[in-house]
Design a protein around this nucleic acid. Sequence first.
DNA 1: GATTCGACGTTATACGTAAAACCTAGGGGC
DNA 2: GCCCCTAGGTTTTACGTATAACGTCGAATC
Lengths: 336, 336
Amino acid sequence: MARGSTRPTSRDVAQAAGVSQAAVSLVLGDKWRGRVSQATAERVREAARDLGYRPNLAARNLRLGRTRTVLLVVPALTTEFFAGVYTGAARIAAEHGFGVVLYPSPEGIGPARDPFASAQSALDGVIASSMAADALTAIRGEALPLVMLDSDPDGSLGAATVNLDIADGIRQAAEHLLSLGHRRFLHLAADVPSWTFEVRARELAARLDEVPGTTVRTARSPISIEGAVTAAQAALAAPGDRPTAVICDDDQLAAGTYKAARRLGLRIPDDLSVTGVDDLALATAMDPELTTVHLNAELFGERGMRALLAVLEGRAPESGDIPVRLVLRGSTARAG
Amino acid sequence: MARGSTRPTSRDVAQAAGVSQAAVSLVLGDKWRGRVSQATAERVREAARDLGYRPNLAARNLRLGRTRTVLLVVPALTTEFFAGVYTGAARIAAEHGFGVVLYPSPEGIGPARDPFASAQSALDGVIASSMAADALTAIRGEALPLVMLDSDPDGSLGAATVNLDIADGIRQAAEHLLSLGHRRFLHLAADVPSWTFEVRARELAARLDEVPGTTVRTARSPISIEGAVTAAQAALAAPGDRPTAVICDDDQLAAGTYKAARRLGLRIPDDLSVTGVDDLALATAMDPELTTVHLNAELFGERGMRALLAVLEGRAPESGDIPVRLVLRGSTARAG
DNA sequence: GATTCGACGTTATACGTAAAACCTAGGGGC
DNA sequence: GCCCCTAGGTTTTACGTATAACGTCGAATC
């Protein structure tokens, strides 16, 4: 195809078709109705095909002042959750002629590298998870159209937000465990400063406060299976009456709790009920399968992208949280 | 910062500093030794800072004809393996002033969407996993500098390859199980056409053929925990002497095998030994912990990026496969 | 005192595209 | 016969940057 030398430009196509460069631009940009004859348009398209012409995106972006590319800033890709968010966002983007570039907040790449230098590409807008804390300040400075995922609607300084109804999910989990007779809880919380985790803590405390006789311990852990093992083990082995139910901020923490329970000789769900949040593949791989709050990651990404498109077009984004639901499996049982 | 109107250009900076646009370019491009006085350079830098100037990447890319951006094409982001590859590649890229854009091969986005349209950005080169099959033909057509990950060194048409020494890993696993007395094997293979899986099958067959009295069944499964459950269950329950050891193409398949074993009432490792490949976080979360071939994903990404940089500079990429090692844990035991 | 030279800049140009402004011929209306 | 309109193009310009080519002025060389 490419003759080894340099890529063909629209001028090369014009020459091959015997027209001006402007005509090529009109035809290929589909703006030729009434400006170029049917026959000429066909000649141009044929020449472009023969030469293997691909428009130079740098030139187009420069000319148009926009790139039809948005950045998706995520905390990490160590679980399939944000992969799902990306899939949803990319699908909607593709339907509107946009591309999505992923920016996983760097761990070990360097101290808070600038996402915009990294993407090396001008951007029309940004979708950012509130969990990608170190990238957020840089994003703010750019004054780009911005949609925040799982972020405080009041504290987001006017940026559009798209949220999962995580409060309702935690409420469902608490309700479920209460109805099974549990009264002594452990909240295994993610040690990450993000609204989405603050909500979990607030909602859980609020609900359990309403029920007389309940107690709740809180332990904090980094979001990883290994980290959760030590945190859960310490919290479960602490003096005082042992909790009978553990509410984990996500499925990885729940997996760590399983391992901690094994080490302590506790059986799930007989001695200890456990719930998670996310519904990763991990959740059904464990023994017993994990009762967890299912999050629709792809829908989350879709809604995020739709909101950004709305912002870009000056429309108001769709409002309302995305519903979630507790999936009952084998890790929860009647308090013994 | 940006006054709500439009972003400042190098010309705005020039005006603010009382110099020409060319001088701004020289100073900010660090090419001013002997061409601009120290004092003027400082004035320019200050003006740029005050205005919040950011160079327009589209313009720079157009002018230079390169983008210092490479594309990393991966099959999926459902495990942390390719997240590690990205981290390694991005680290090396950053050291050389490059950015890395991730392109997860689409599942459900559309029929083989063009990665280059998607990235919406001109690219200097591509690093592609051989597992991202549907994207590969599009990549070939672009005649871009290309590095293949885990691809057949002979069949890659001259593209540079960087490979894990997966053959050695499988050999270590087979050796380990043979030394424990196992003779009846199940190979749970990934149902994905990729060199990296062909190598596993070939190497395993070759090693077991050398030992008289061994038998090996093969089952194929899509790469997911759920998919592996059915495949492993069927293969283990098939008529004939049951295998005593299962060699899985990756850890997700191993996790599925655990679940299948539970359903069949088989205990690991007493009734069944299991090995995997990858060493995901999953591997140590399972009970018992999984004996598996540890792959250094970050090093893999680093080597891939280094090879691409070499290609871009016309040097020969470093050769030699990346070593791997079997990590012994609790899922393998003496054949009963 | 003419020449050279380095320090310090400026002017001009090109990258490839999109689109506004312009041109030309032929036909229809009056 | 003149005017205007439309179809079917072309010429020109601008996007913002990097850099090659070109000045200028004072000091140093011979």
